[in-house]
Simulated scan of single mutants.
Amino acid sequence: MMKKIYVIRHCEAEGQPSEAKLTNKGDIQALELAEFFLDTKIDRIISSPYKRAIQSIQPLANLLNVEIELNSLLSERVLSTNNYSDWYEKLRNTFNDFELKFEGGESSQEAAKRIIGVVEEVFKSENENTIIVTHGNLMALLLNYVNKKFGFDDWKNLSNPDVFLLKVQNDNVTYARLWKQD
């Protein structure tokens, strides 16, 4: 049996805090996401507890009558509790050094471990088709785990929303980007 995990980056949001809602455009994107998956069999939906992630998948969950499971391991990565003006460069550096860690934040290695744990649990479960809704940085770290060539520049090119399909067959994991942003 081939297992499929659809990894989704949330739709456009008003900001970074956990309570940040989707923008009007993000609400429309969530409806487009629901339409995108309408003919796909989905057994399970797991989401970051952040409001923007839940709002991104709620229209589809309602249509499919599938409960959204909240999992804090899928929460946004905290780069640091300090507000750095050069955060972009600091983030780039964490893609080059997975153990690099800034005050109050988590390393790429620590953040990747969270989402990889969720994915491994899903692959071991009975479900064939699962959706995981998360954030761009965690998504990029997961894709880097599957393919070491996926790096900072690939993270920069992710869209809101974005969808990747992970497939596992005979312990071989592959991924493909499914979402084509306008």
Rank of each mutant, 00 (worst) to 15 (best):
F95H: 03
K41N: 08
L22K: 04
Q169M: 10
D39H: 09
L166N: 11
K180W: 07
E126I: 09
D43C: 06
H10F: 08
E35G: 04
D86Q: 04
N127G: 10
N71I: 00
D39F: 07
G15P: 02
A140Q: 03
T23R: 05
D182W: 11
N93H: 12
S80Y: 13
V7A: 02
Q58P: 10
N93S: 15
L79S: 03
D97V: 06
A53Y: 04
S85H: 09
F150E: 02
N157K: 15
Y145P: 00
E19S: 12
I132D: 07
E121A: 14
S75T: 15
T94P: 01
T134D: 00
Y88E: 12
N160C: 06
E32Y: 13
M139F: 05
L158N: 05
E32A: 12
Y145E: 01
W155V: 07
N65L: 08
E89M: 10
Y6D: 09
N83E: 07
P17V: 11
G26S: 12
K41L: 13
D43L: 04
F95V: 00
R114V: 03
D86I: 07
L142R: 02
E69W: 01
T134C: 10
K3M: 12
Q109W: 08
N137I: 12
S125L: 09
E32N: 10
S108F: 11
G15E: 02
K113S: 14
K148W: 05
F123K: 03
D171F: 08
K90F: 01
M2R: 11
E106K: 03
Q109V: 00
S56M: 10
L38G: 09
K101L: 00
Y88M: 13
I131H: 09
S80G: 01
T23G: 01
W179T: 08
G117L: 06
V118P: 02
A111T: 08
S85C: 04
S159N: 11
N157P: 09
N127Y: 15
E67L: 07
